[in-house]
Design a protein around this nucleic acid. Structure first.
Lengths: 195, 195, 195, 195
DNA sequence: TATGAATGAGCATTCATTCAT
DNA sequence: GATGAATGAATGCTCATTCAT
């Protein structure tokens, strides 16, 4: 029971931190606010996280992992690009909708804070771009896509859609049909790149 | 000569502020750093700007205005979408390349700082989206584009490219051929949306 | 014990603040000095007082309340004016002697600081004048005092004695026999106003 | 003409300084405000006064000298105390009324500012007390006053009236008949001390 | 383990004073 | 002399972090 309580304490802190960070941003959030929102003491946060930065970093990591778990692209690698693209986009959009606050934090905040974090975020981005590159390259290989495409550029075009529509979804409280939206987006892109 | 010196002092502060803000971010920049970088005293900054926030806001506004001046979209309105799109994208990309630091500040920093500023940034974005919407709508009207397009979505797809490639251009110090890049991007989009 | 310590911390800050304010004046006192004198950190002061002004205001209020508690005039209202006057004056003088530093702050500092505070101080003064007015009026009523007296003027004359002798007592470190002093003062006034 | 202009510049600065100091107090007054009120440049003030403190000190000195010129007590020394007292009090009260702002500065501000100034103010006060002491002593000598009076105390009682009624006169914009007021005050005191 | 009182480094801002014109 | 742009020392206040309980 103690272990369970400890876990729930840690989780309530994370939950509260996501809430407050997403509303006020990293720099405008005070540790005390998080503590209050978590129903814990200020000191308790430091039992689980060594600093404000680490807490933030942890949230970012968790967020990213959850996305990647949610949208496992690899196992789709053999499917047609059309399907993969649709799967990826709709997966992301659905995730954004279901994790609005976490998304807001993950997308917007990283750049202002810490060199280490910026580089980490860049890595995440590049990883994503590489994933999409592979998808495109394979599509060309298989003859699905036009062979004259600049793979890097197309990959970045697709990746650009994700954070932009993320903030679109997050900022508006409207509940979108994420599948239909993804369908429309990928239709345009596909027509633009298919053979 | 007095007038000239005053202007150059103000300008040297702005220049220094862009430099430091773009490197360290708003919250990690101390006024003293800006002063030193500008070769001025701390107090001098306050002769021209009433607060750190106002200085930052001023830079953002200036940056935005310069972009809009640089890429006057309106006078192109009667041209084919293909041309307009290419003009807009290559214009932005060229601007980003020529104003790397200002771009970095303009694109990245806004969200963490101030509610008022966030709303202002949203307005700018929406304005841009509306511009592109008109472009698309007119293109459909003229029979250049597929009539079944969801104008809003396509507009957002195009707008998503701008900040993403902005940070791509800004983060890497490589000198890209912005016209070629824009050409490739718009080719894909165009194929995706043209009749 | 926790409660006790918290109280003593707050008190040690107040004590230190009275000490430093009384020696250097409000504007020449830095918060850090108070903190050092209190054996506390700068931040600790702000745990108990939201600003320098509030700390000062609090001290003033406390000082005033202590005086009024110390010299409860009301319960003497039925006694002869001679007795009341002597009681009031000797009470004040004794208080001033026993709370030299607080007196110095209370009497001298108010006017330079803050409009709100000035008005509060004026109210305190007017309250005091009214108290004495009642005393005089009742004395005339009872036939103790000359009926042709201008009550307002006499009241002000008596009130003028208090801050003046306060600073006299406070500035000199001599230990006066406050009762004898009060006796002499009130004797002169009484002879001047009695029937 | 230059000399005349220079004099008027200096005077306009003093005039403006009295105005602003009396309204905002020493610490809340900025040199720039004085400069603006004087219709001069900030730097110009330093042509005539080496520092803010010196400007303030100069005003105080001038104020005090004007009082003493206005109410020359010495030449009255041979007259009866009744007359002297009335002369002194009514003189002061008239002066206060005619120089409201200067009075406000002279009476209220001194204590918070500068050790040197505090001591100067104490000297002024003691000088005044000595003057009145002589007056009383002479009155006793001449058999006008009761011989058992404590000269110091009575002197302080009289001196206490001056700043108190000064602030009374200054704070209220009512135009008082200073002669009548002085008459009433001195009547009470005299009855209290005469043989 | 959990707490929150205590801390002090860090920073935006003010304003008396200087000095080139 | 007169000016006001430029300066930087000085200071109130914030908030992440610590540690005694």
């Amino acid at each position: 029971m103690e272990a369970r309580r400890k876990i729930s304490k840690r989780d309530s802190i994370i939950e509260a931190a996501i809430e407050v960070f997403s509303q006020k941003g990293y720099h405008n959030t005070r540790m005390e606010e998080i503590a209050i929102a978590a129903g814990a003491g200020k000191g308790t946060i430091y039992e689980y996280f060594s600093s404000k930065m680490e807490l933030f970093h942890d949230i970012l990591l968790t967020g990213w992992r959850k996305i990647e778990e949610d949208i496992s692209v690899d196992e789709m690698a053999s499917r047609p690009v059309a399907e993969q693209l649709l799967h990826m986009l709709s997966g992301h959009l659905r995730y954004f909708q279901q994790n609005r606050q976490l998304t807001r934090v993950t997308i917007c905040e990283v750049k202002t804070i810490d060199q280490e974090l910026v580089e980490w975020a860049l890595q995440m981005k590049e990883e994503k771009e590489k994933q999409v590159c592979s998808m495109i390259a394979a599509g060309i290989e298989r003859g699905e896509l036009r062979p004259d495409l600049d793979i890097d550029i197309v990959s970045r075009m697709i990746c650009s859609l994700i954070p932009y529509f993320a903030s679109y979804v997050v900022m508006n409280d409207l509940d979108l049909d994420s599948y239909r939206l993804a369908d429309q987006i990928s239709a345009v892109i596909l027509t633009g790149i298919k053979k």
